[in-house]
Amino acid sequence: MRHIISLLMENESGALSRVAGLFSARGYNIESLSVAPTEDPTLSRMTIVTRGSDDVIEQITKQLNKLIDVVKVQDLTEGGHIERELMLVKVRASGEHREEMKRMSDIFRGRIIDVTDKTYTIELTGTVSKLNAFLGALESDAILEVVRTGASGIGRGDRIMRV
């Protein structure tokens, strides 16, 4: 099962490598990982997308909690939550493709943020599956470059994670 795990951790050098090291040392899978400081500069917020059986996910959250730099751990997928990922895609946009690309970007509510006579760079946010769907809808030789941030997640409604 796919899980989105959120952590708050001390914004210390090396904290990220402790988390990454834990996943590789114990053979847990990481689909994506995104991290940045929060409104409190001493804290970083990390979102990890992983897959595993319930037992594995239980171990992952316990092991993360055990890291000294980790302040809080939450499995977002246990309750209502929202996830978003940002993607930048550079696509071929010449000749008859140009109009088609603009149309596709509009359908997926993307924004064209950079233009040359041969290319568009499209910015798209959404769930991981929406971004996948967009890429799937393009002809593969039209895609020149893809950059994705990995998912960020937050609980719905009153579900708040803070220190």
Binding site: S13, G14, S17, R18, G21, A25, I68
Partner: peptide, 14 residues
């Protein structure tokens, strides 16, 4: 040292 010892310590500091 912090990198080499990381997987075999409870915690480490530089």
């Amino acid at each position: 040292t912090v990198g080499i010892s990381r997987p075999c310590v409870k915690h480490n500091f530089l």
